[in-house]
Amino acid sequence: MRLSGKTAIVTGGAQGIGRVIAETFAGEGATVIAVDMTKPDYTCEGVFGYTCNVTDRDGLKAFVADIVGTFGKIDVLINNAGITRDGLLQNMTEEMWDLVCDVNLKGVFNLTQLVAPLMIDQGTGSIVNISSVVGEYGNVGQTNYAATKAGVIAMAKSWAKEFARKGANVRVNSLAPGYINTEMMKTVPDKVLDPIRQKTMLGRLGEPEEIANACLFLASDEASFITGHCLSVNGGLRL
């Protein structure tokens, strides 16, 4: 049990990659709080659903206080919540830009700013920001999304330096998935996915479990000497 006795928060935990991360962590002994805009419905033992918006700072303060009051500590934070509002630059509205930045970038800042001091005080913790291959290489029609996913990599590197200066063993890393075979991806036609597979060295899409396992590694003590790193899990994809 690689996370036995740990308390972990996973944002965007209602579905997709976030849900699989939450279930994987619980299977490794963690008590997991899965957070989303709508309360995640879990039957998995060890996972507790919680409704909260990462853009709502007052709501997040109440959420963190509730988790600490109930479980006593926060050992792991997975910043996974994210949205897309795609469009070419000339077609992207200010609303599309602001909404993606608020959720994907400011939301990560909001929750980490509340959780990190608790981890520093207890002297240990692990934070993983879920980025994207798009954040590493950019993508047509995703100026806002790419900017936010690059931003969470930069924030992780900055926080890793800040927390190490304070002498706490609080590690901060990011994980950049490629194209993953989630329920949403299953609705995309093969004529769109085939070129992606062709650009991927392993010739296929990734599975959510493969992202969850990589996230588990970074969150666990197995990665005790890794901080400030971005782990690319994309099958060798180059956009």
Rank of each mutant, 00 (worst) to 15 (best):
N234V: 01
D86Y: 04
E183L: 10
Q198G: 09
Y145S: 09
T200Q: 13
P177W: 00
E183A: 15
A150L: 00
G135M: 01
I120T: 12
I74N: 10
R2N: 13
I226A: 06
V47M: 09
T124P: 04
K39V: 14
Q15W: 12
N110T: 02
V134C: 11
W97C: 01
T93E: 06
S232V: 11
I74T: 08
L237P: 06
T55V: 03
L202M: 15
V192P: 01
N144Y: 05
N169R: 15
G29W: 10
G27L: 06
R165G: 06
R85W: 01
A214G: 04
G138R: 05
G135P: 00
C230D: 13
V134F: 09
G138I: 04
G228M: 10
G235K: 05
T43E: 14
D102N: 12
G167R: 05
A62D: 14
A22Q: 05
D58L: 07
K39N: 12
E207V: 10
N173K: 04
N144A: 15
L202H: 11
K191F: 15
L114V: 10
T43V: 12
V192R: 07
M96Y: 00
M201F: 05
S232H: 09
I83W: 02
A219M: 00
V134Q: 14
T24F: 09
L193H: 02
C215Q: 02
R19C: 01
G18E: 05
E94V: 08
Q142A: 06
A34R: 03
M96G: 01
A156D: 10
V10R: 10
V233P: 11
I9Y: 09
T38H: 10
